[in-house]
Nucleic acid binder design. Sequence first.
DNA 1: GTAATCACTGGTTGCGCTGG
DNA 2: CCAGCGCAACCAGTGATTAC
Length: 355
Amino acid sequence: MADDRTTITELATALGVAGAGSLQEATAEHPGNLAIGNESWERLERILAAGKYSALGLAAFANGAFFARHPAGLDGRAPRLIEWSGDRRIPGDQAVPADLLVDRVYMISCKYLSQILHNTAPARVFEEILAPSPQARHPDWFAEVASRQHLALYRGALKLLDLEGMPDTPGWLDSAQRARLRAAFREHGSRGMPGELRAPYDALIAAVSKKSAETWQEALGEPAQQERLLWRLLRIYSATYYILGIDRHRTMRLRVMTPWEWRQAFEFRSFKVSADGRGQPRVNWTARYRERADGRRGEVHGHVEIRWSHRPFCGPPEAKIYLDTRHDEVPGYVPLDGRSRGPDHEQLRFPLGGG
DNA sequence: GTAATCACTGGTTGCGCTGG
DNA sequence: CCAGCGCAACCAGTGATTAC
């Protein structure tokens, strides 16, 4: 079950799209073009009544209404059917992350515009360059690209924490042993890697960063591959979709281009990666492009962190891919602003209380 | 009697946030 | 900037149930 914040954001956006006068009215009326069940209506009413997310609900509703009016959105046409994906994940490879589907055509993703683009197994990023792949399981990336340093750190940790009867290599840890390790780290008191293990940890960080960057650059090969990777990174798919979102300070309304459109607007130039591991294993990426209209050159930046998400040696590491460029400056993300005929086309600012 | 399908389950992976 | 928590979807293994 989606949490209250997600539910109200998505449903209030849907009601804005549905063409209702206000969030309160719409909630009372249950407009027929929004296809959700009774339990969802009840839930929405309960969340609204609690009042905690009122500002968020109003902002989301305004986003939906804006989209309904905007020439690049529904342009004033009344939607017949709005479907909500609810708390289900959309199945399939390379699925557009749409929370709402309007008239089976317009896909809307309701987001808090997080800086995180992807969060996945490192091998998926660096070896498979995010292409759809049947391989579901990936080995521990640390062991794969820096086995010596990984092992040295593991053995150092066992010694420091005075743990007996543990397997020789971290790959053989079972869940009980991982729990023991986790508890021992906690008991040791330090947050993160204990200071005594600084040297072997730094060695691991340097090795993983370097090898990951090399692997990635090698897998990227030709510019055509690099361009595809950039599209995957930026979540540019073969159908256009909209992001109606709210970050901490303001509303964000974007349309995401298709590769076809992207090619007409931009010329891809290069995709470069570089190892940058100090605090934790990290690889920076930069894509360069040129705008066809005026020849202007631009860059998009981001970075990938390779990290344990559940304490050292407790499970394989994950790759968190960050976008460091502002969303409205990303090639292929088209801000929907200025051209609205509606009254509230300026960027709304809300104190997003509650959450 | 065997094969196919289903329901359950515990571990794993992915996601996004928050705390220091 | 780094670390890790909480949650939930996903996945594979297992045993039970149904179909043939």
